[in-house]
């Protein structure tokens, strides 16, 4: 098993877990004319990474990783699972994380079973845990010999890749412009990964009010291409 190849595979936007069906509120932003061109798409992408992903999914990944490294008992994982559920307020965002999580766990089990992952999957299926994508991703990457830094870099990269791909489809912006956003935010990703480990506990799960409102509004959007 090659850690880098495994990382490339599980982190690929074409990895069939359904991530391409979610816009995480972007569809509301576009339909309301707030994200409407390349400059606004760039601002949206940058703010998402720096102010949303950093404090949420990336922080959950980091926290799950720290629990795995320290070989913490299962109840710690259960607490993290509850915390993530309690923080993901908009129903569509919470459901997205759960759906991706369970599909990721099922699919990776077929590639190479990992005990922790199958335990997690079982507990989710028994209704004892909620199950979230960032936690599942951390678990499998950790068991595959991937470093935390690489896992985080890849996680941010693929999240951003999803954002710019959705922008290219929805806004729409040019494919070249989308790739330029992806490329230009490399220093931001690097900085966020470097700082990820030093985040204070009370900063985990910070919410952005505007994004939450838009994610909630998506539930009522008349015409929708995306699930969230």
């Amino acid at each position: 098993m090659q850690p880098l190849l495994t990382l490339l595979q599980i982190n690929d936007s074409m990895f069939p877990i359904g991530s391409f069906t979610h816009s995480y509120g972007l569809e509301s932003y576009v339909s309301q004319g707030i994200v409407k061109d390349t400059p606004s798409a760039t601002v949206y992408a940058k703010n998402m990474l720096r102010h949303s992903i950093y404090y949420n999914d990336a922080a959950f990944l980091q926290k799950a990783w720290a629990l795995l490294e320290a070989k913490k008992p299962v109840r710690e994982l259960q607490k993290l699972d509850e915390l993530v559920t309690a923080l993901k307020v908009p129903a569509e965002i919470r459901d997205a994380s759960k759906k991706l999580g369970i599909r990721f766990l099922k699919l990776t089990q077929e590639l190479r079973p990992v005990k922790k992952c199958s335990d997690y999957l079982n507990k989710i299926q028994e209704g004892k845990l909620h199950g979230h994508y960032a936690v599942a991703f951390a678990m499998y990457a950790h068991a595959s010999g991937i470093t935390l830094k690489d896992a985080l870099l890849a996680f941010y990269y693929n999240t951003l890749n999803g954002i710019v791909t959705n922008c290219a489809k929805l806004v729409p912006i040019g494919q070249g412009d989308a790739q330029k956003i992806l490329f230009d935010l490399q220093p931001t990703i690097k900085q966020l990964v470097d700082e990820q480990g030093s985040m204070e506990e009370e900063m985990i799960g910070l919410c952005c009010i505007g994004q939450e409102v838009r994610c909630m509004q998506h539930e009522k959007q008349y015409s929708r291409l995306y699930i969230s």
């Binding site: 932003y29 707030i34 994200v35 606004s40 601002v43 949206y44 703010n47 998402m48 102010h51 949303s52 915390l83 309690a86 923080l87 307020v89 009370e202 900063m203 985990i204 799960g205 910070l206 919410c207 952005c208 009010i209 505007g210 994004q211």
Partner: peptide
């Protein structure tokens, strides 16, 4: 859990997401 930090020196508060 609703965790909201508003820090004008570090966040683009008039911008998208805020």
């Amino acid at each position: 859990l609703d965790n909201q930090l508003i820090e004008p020196g570090h966040q683009p508060l008039n911008s998208i997401l805020f």
